[in-house]
Simulated assay, not measured.
Amino acid sequence: MAEPFKVHILGCGSALPTLRHHASSQVVEVREKVLMLDCSEGTQMQLRKCRVRFTKLSHVFITHLHGDHCFGLIGMISTFGLLGRTAKLHVHGPKALGAELKRQIKFFTHDLGFEVVFYPVDTTQRQVVYEDRSITVESIPLEHRVPTCGYLIREKQSLPHIRRDMMDCYQIPASQVGNIKNGADWITADGEVIPNARLVKPADPARCYAYISDTRYMPQLHEQLRGVTTLYHESTYGEDNMQNAEKYHHSTARQAALVARDAGVDKLLLGHYSSRYEDETVLLEEAKSVFENTFLTNEMAVFNV
C-alpha cells in the first residue's frame, strides 16, 4: 500500500474575508513530512482544527506577497515560540519576504526559542527549491500582479516491492532484501540464477501535487504540469466575471479546467473563490464541462493525491 500523500485544505477563499471561507492555506502530508502552502490570516487556528501536529510542520512555501497568502505567518511563528518549539522552521518565498519577516520576528517575538530559516525563491524560474531523499519541491513561475510562483511537490520513485512468496520459496534471507530491491538477482545453493524480476513487484507510481495559486490564465502552463497527479488551480471567478479575471490577473474555473485537461492530470481541485459567489457549484459545473474529474475544495476537506 502506498504511503499517505494528503492535502488538507485550511482555507480556499480569496482576499475579502467572509464567514464561509478562510483565505489561502494548505497542509500537505507526504512521506512522513508536513509542508505548508501559503499561510493566510487565521491559519494557525485552522491547523489546530485539522489535527496535524504543529511540531511536524517543517517547511512553509509562500507563493506571493499578497496578504491573503502570508498574513498568518508571523502569528503562527509566534505561537510556535509560545509552545516551546525548538526545531528549525524553513520558510521559502519571494526574495522581498526575507527582510520583512526578519523585521517582524525582531519586533513581535522575544526569545523565540527556534530558528526561522528563509530561502529566497526566484519566481521567474522553474527550479528545485527543496529536496531530500524522498521528495522534491519545485517552483512554477506564474503571472499575477506581483511576483508569484506555484509549487510542485513530487515523490521520488520508490523501490519495488519484495515478493514474499518467492523469498520463502527460495529461502532467501532477510539480509538480502535491500540488495534485491536494488536490482540484484539471487543465486541458489545449486547455482541457479533467479532473475530479479521474479523476486519483486513493480513499485508504486510516484505521485505529484501541483499548487497553482493566483495567476491569470496561462495557455502554455500545462506544459509545466506534465505528470502531475492532482492539480490545485485557482478559480477565483466564473466566465460571467471574465472582465475581473483579466483585470486582476486571476483565472476562471473553466480556464483552470483547460489547464488540467491539457496537462493530463488525474484530478483537479478548485479554490480561491471570489466572495461574490455564495454557492460555488456554478464554478464546479463550469469546470466539469471541460474536465470531469473536478472537485471543489472546502475548509477541513482532505484529498488524497
Rank of each mutant, 00 (worst) to 15 (best):
D240G: 06
D122N: 12
P173D: 02
T55Q: 15
R133H: 14
P94H: 08
D185Y: 02
V290R: 03
T43H: 03
D38F: 00
V27N: 03
A2T: 09
Y273L: 08
V146L: 04
G183Y: 06
R198C: 08
R145L: 04
Y130L: 12
G67C: 01
I74T: 14
T86P: 01
K102N: 10
E41D: 03
D165A: 02
Q157R: 03
S158M: 04
M45F: 07
P94N: 05
T294F: 02
F303A: 04
S175R: 15
F107W: 12
K56M: 12
L225I: 10
P195G: 03
H161A: 07
H161E: 12
Q157S: 02
R198K: 15
D165I: 02
F71L: 00
I74S: 14
I162F: 03
C208F: 08
K288W: 05
N244D: 07
P17R: 07
Q46N: 03
V116I: 14
R254P: 01
K6N: 15
V193W: 06
H59A: 06
I62Q: 01
S274G: 02
D38I: 00
P219W: 08
Y232K: 00
V302D: 06
S139G: 04
R164L: 09
L37K: 04
S289K: 15
A197Q: 10
D68C: 01
A257K: 10
K56T: 15
T230L: 11
F80R: 08
A206Y: 08
R276T: 07
G72N: 00
M1T: 13
G84K: 07
V128S: 03
L152D: 07
L270Y: 01
V265R: 01
I162K: 12
V282D: 01
L101K: 02
S158F: 11
K95M: 05
S175F: 15
I74R: 09
V200W: 07
N304M: 13
N179M: 12
I153Y: 11
F118Y: 15
V137Y: 07
E3F: 12
L83W: 14
D214L: 06
I62P: 01
V282S: 05
I62D: 00
C208K: 10
E29W: 10
F80G: 02
R31D: 04
V91S: 05
N241F: 10
E239A: 08
R85I: 12
A197R: 07
Y209L: 14
R254L: 05
S40M: 00
S275M: 03
K247G: 00
A256V: 03
P195D: 02
E3P: 08
V121M: 10
V121D: 09
V193H: 04
V121Y: 09
I140L: 11
V305M: 10
